[in-house]
């Protein structure tokens, strides 16, 4: 049964994703990509358990590598998204002189 519930969660989240992301204007498509990239760093959650659990030495090593990779993904992803979004300046009215 658990798997069926998981499929429901997956399906509903997928729909939400489709609906929201279709409404993101082309202006912000690059930040959108880096944002979803940052969010996919959520694998970090799995990596933390793999690195901190008692699964044997090799598993711990693989887990730590996974933590490093996922953390890099998360930190870099969110920071670059923020850097980009900070650059988008609101129209100040002056540039819209024609209207």
């Amino acid at each position: 049964m658990t798997q069926i519930f998981q499929l429901y969660v997956f399906l509903l989240a997928g729909f939400v994703g489709f609906i929201i992301i279709q409404r993101v204007p082309p202006l912000l498509h690059t930040p959108l990509m880096s944002a979803t990239n940052a969010i996919s760093g959520i694998s970090l959650v799995g990596a933390l358990v793999a690195a901190g659990g008692k699964y044997g030495t090799l598993s711990t090593i693989l887990g730590v590598i996974a933590v490093v990779c996922a953390t890099t993904n998360v930190v870099a992803g969110f920071l670059i998204t923020d850097r980009m979004l900070a650059m988008f300046k609101k129209p100040d009215g002056k540039s819209e002189s024609g209207k």
Partner: peptide, 16 residues
């Protein structure tokens, strides 16, 4: 949370 975040990204990448 992994399922949800992954599904969001999966949808986003596909649309783009």
């Amino acid at each position: 949370v992994l399922i949800i975040a992954g599904a969001l990204e999966g949808a986003g990448g596909f649309i783009l």
